[in-house]
Nucleic acid binder design. Structure first.
Lengths: 237, 237
DNA sequence: CATATAAATTGCTATAATAGCAATATGAAA
DNA sequence: TTTCATATTGCTATTATAGCAATTTATATG
């Protein structure tokens, strides 16, 4: 369980929250709107935004609204280059396409999976990468594989009092989820079935920082085979 | 010229500097090493790192070193989804490949260009995207096109007392650069020639937030034609 | 062009956060 | 187990900042 330092850097916490809000906004947002949405007092919001603008991480438009700036793209690129995850994984993921199923790579973020790559059969390479998206973790084999790496307490806290997508909606939802997590830990891969489509995921790295998956009309007795294929692929990344 | 607010958020400024340093590091870095490299007092560095780790933006390894965490990828994806730049631009850039030259899209960051896309002929789609990189702005047509959008004072300050890649190395380097900038402003496109290769770039948006370029063995009398092609492409993004 | 209005931004100061030193805790190596 | 290096905390004097009110900025309207 991650803990804050004795003296957290509060400006950084709030600033990154604002930055994330800018990142998900489809159009520029005003200082006032952000202040209300994030429940941060107006003056403080103004200071955060102008600081981000000064750094080039945000961009202040002519009509005094803010959107994400070039700095965030640079940071994104630098992080991908630095981690080497993308460049190492792409050729390996490409080689998995020959099985004719969906191929994906993703990371876990809170209760969502963030797909860095999601390729459907007959999709162009650009589309696979440009189809960057977020998805509920509990409805994704990648999400479930990565959730299984967390401490039970962490998982319970993450979903406490919330609706868990794909799970029962009463008070027993968490124990239902934990049963599935235990199963995944035992198997060392995650498999999800939905409408005749099976999705299988294995983790990358130890401790895992991402996961890769194959999904499609896979028969039950092919699962073990694909687990093996994915595990080999994971070794190469 | 961007100005800081009356009360800058200093924790945010320092925290993002640390984050960028993590992003460019190829391997996990210790608190002490970062403290020395960025000249931030050790205690403060520890607090920034643990705050970033808590947020999931950084990741603390078993041996107490830090690297970028899943949150940064998510932020990257969200910013690209939010801006729509990548998904809108990819099909257009793909259509430019038929001319058989290098096709690129980039943003300006300080004195570098950050390529979001850089496709050489006969390169696979994955390689074009996975070849994310940074390059000196003054040696890139994209960089020069975007620099020309800045105020003269800003450009002069950016390069004051520095070696300007591709320009003379004496005190007249800035005036040489400014002459080129004036020319680009007048033409409304940037063209650079190096070893028989011409690179042409036009800006995206107004004010410009990115630029696209074509480069290769282009004859001087084809330049106008490619400027026109690029400008049309820019209109579609 | 002048006026009104809404939003952004600053100045001020009481309050809260934090810088950094020294002490303590943690983890790896011998 | 001990040693050593690094990470982290507790403490408090110092500095930053929260937020209110005043001021500035920008846009719309007449």
């Amino acid at each position: 369980m991650k803990k804050l330092p004795a003296q957290p850097v509060n400006g950084l916490i709030d600033g990154l929250e604002v930055l994330q809000e800018l990142a998900v906004s489809r159009s520029p947002v005003s200082c006032k709107a952000l202040s209300e949405k994030l429940n941060i007092e107006l003056t403080r919001m103004n200071r955060i935004l102008k600081t981000l603008d000064y750094l080039g991480i945000a961009y202040r438009t002519q009509d005094r609204k803010y959107k994400s700036g070039p700095g965030i793209h640079v940071l994104a690129i630098q992080s991908m280059l630095g981690s080497g995850l993308f460049s190492k994984a792409l050729p390996v993921l490409e080689s998995l396409q020959k099985y004719g199923h969906v191929v994906a790579l993703g990371v876990l973020w809170k209760d969502t999976v963030s797909y860095l790559y999601h390729h459907k059969p007959d999709m162009s390479a650009y589309e696979a990468i440009a189809s960057l998206s977020l998805y509920p973790a509990t409805q994704s084999s990648i999400g479930m594989a990565l959730l299984s790496e967390k401490e039970n307490d962490e998982i319970k806290e993450l979903y406490n009092g919330k609706i868990i997508p794909g799970y029962r909606t009463d008070y027993k939802n968490i124990s239902e989820l934990m049963d599935e997590i235990e199963k995944i830990r035992h198997q060392e891969y995650a498999a999800l079935t939905k409408k005749g489509v099976i999705s299988i995921a294995v983790k990358l790295g130890s401790p895992a920082y991402a996961a890769i998956a194959v999904s499609g009309k896979i028969s039950a007795n092919e699962v073990t085979e694909y687990v093996s294929i994915l595990s080999e692929a994971a070794e190469k990344i």
